[in-house]
């Protein structure tokens, strides 16, 4: 087992080195302009430039411009979406009333809301929070709903037999049993929200990681574009890891390895 891990690690390092080498070689071969394929060293240098300040702010300014929208919309989506999904599953009439609304909103891709948000809220913070909120809430509601619906009947029946009331049944049986599914919904939601803010910033924004990509594109600075994409991927990985950490704390009994 230990040996197995070493071999996997070896393949990782080998593949990535080969990939980086191929990139470097292709860029240095002169067959592509730096505009089409920015050399790796230029991309590294672009990190430094953005660190020092690029287009009205250093890297933290841009990060915060994107991140605050995501955190705000995600928090709103969790505060509203989890109770909504749970109630839809737990109280028949709430489910009947809300399901058609969710069914209509669900197949509309979040980026499709960007122009409407601009019409309704302008191009500032509220419009972006609106788009990201719409993106964030759907998976939260859907998974919270399913989490409660999928509570094993034998658990519910066992608790009922022991005389548990409806409220305690929800809070002490259904919710704990569904928590892993709810947490998965939160992770899907956070990833989707991050992708949505990038899309929104590609359309219109004065700052943020998506704005860096668009600005790099407009100024023919491919290295900045590639650097911003790497930054976006890094944040995505970190946010997912943070939620996985929370998940392990909240549902230590869940052994699914996804």
């Amino acid at each position: 087992m230990h040996r197995e891990r070493l071999v996997t690690l070896g393949y990782w390092i080998g593949t990535l080195l080969a990939l980086a080498g191929l990139w470097w070689w292709a860029a240095a071969s002169g067959r592509f302009t730096p505009h089409v394929l920015p050399p790796p060293q230029d991309v590294l240098e672009s990190f430094g430039r953005v660190m020092d300040g690029y287009m009205g702010g250093d890297v933290w300014t841009h990060l915060w411009a994107s991140l605050r929208v995501v955190l705000l919309s995600f928090a709103l989506a969790v505060l509203i979406g989890v109770p909504l999904g749970v109630l839809m599953a737990w109280i028949e009439s709430v489910g009947v009333v809300m399901s058609p609304l969710i069914a209509v909103l669900r197949p509309i891709p979040p980026p499709a809301w960007i122009p409407l948000a601009i019409l309704w809220f302008g191009i500032g913070l509220p419009g972006k929070v609106f788009v990201c909120f719409v993106a964030a809430i759907v998976p939260v509601v859907v998974n919270s709903f399913l989490a409660i619906r999928q509570t094993p009947p034998e658990l519910l029946n066992a608790a009922r037999t022991l005389g548990t009331g409806r409220t305690r049944l929800l809070f002490e049986v259904a919710l704990p049993s569904g928590l892993p599914v709810i947490m998965t919904g939160l992770r899907i939601s956070l990833g989707l929200t991050w992708a949505t803010i990038v899309a929104a910033e590609l359309v219109v924004a004065p700052a943020g990681f998506g704005f860096l990509i668009m600005n790099g594109y407009r100024n023919f600075e491919s290295a900045i574009m590639a650097g911003a994409m790497i930054g976006i991927a890094l944040v995505a990985v970190l946010m997912n890891a943070a939620l996985e950490f929370v998940e392990r704390r909240v549902v230590p009994w869940d052994s699914r390895d996804d």
Binding site: L16, A195, V198, L202, S222, A233, V237, N240
Partner: peptide
């Protein structure tokens, strides 16, 4: 390595 990059972030490079 490539997966965490949101697909839409590729759009500008895709255009180039």
């Amino acid at each position: 390595l490539l997966r965490p990059i949101p697909p839409i972030a590729w759009a500008p490079f895709a255009i180039i």
